[in-house]
């Protein structure tokens, strides 16, 4: 096991210690791990599998069912465009299309250099300033294609 893996196992065990060995804790545990690592490492899944006595396939099934969980680390900048109806009606699809085009990525992908990952989200509840997109949880309201371009330019420069 590499030292990265060891670290993951150790951190995972710490999280598991806070939970009883009951199957219904699976999703709260996965939520914690997702927050901790930004994704759900395979090693963590194995630890959970042993701890809760749930087969790996079932855990994998749960992870791939819920869009909040990801199997790969997200990019340094995770840009998500709200495609809730309120934002959609105000043109967020064009913003997302532009984002895909500029970064040459598809929904849910991370760029090869690990810098950007993009996805769509459902309503973030900022309908008052629709359309919105977020960069690592920072909300950009009243968004336009132009505004997106400016933000991307800035992020690309920042490295």
């Amino acid at each position: 096991m590499s030292c990265v893996d060891e670290k993951i196992v150790e951190e995972t065990r710490k999280i598991l210690d806070g939970y009883k060995k009951e199957k219904d804790n699976l999703i709260p545990i996965l939520n914690d791990i997702q927050v901790k690592f930004g994704y759900i490492p395979k090693k963590s899944q194995m630890e959970i599998s042993k701890y809760l006595g749930i087969p790996m396939a079932e855990i994998f099934g749960v992870i791939t069912f819920y869009s909040r969980f990801s199997l790969e680390p997200k990019g340094k900048y995770n840009i998500s465009v709200c495609l809730g109806t309120a934002c959609f009606v105000k043109g967020s699809q064009a913003i997302f299309d532009r984002l895909k085009e500029r970064l040459k990525l598809e929904d849910g992908q991370t760029s090869a250099d690990g810098k950007f990952s993009i996805d769509t989200t459902r309503c973030v509840g900022a309908c008052g300033i629709a359309p919105v997109f977020t960069v690592n949880n920072e909300v950009y309201g009243h968004a336009t294609v132009k505004k997106l371009d400016e933000v991307l330019d800035k992020l690309e420069k920042e490295g």
Partner: peptide, 20 residues
Amino acid sequence: NIGAIDCIERGFESCISTTY
């Protein structure tokens, strides 16, 4: 009581498979 296979992914992409 083995659970080698399960339903993975969601919606149109759903399929029966193993972990990863």
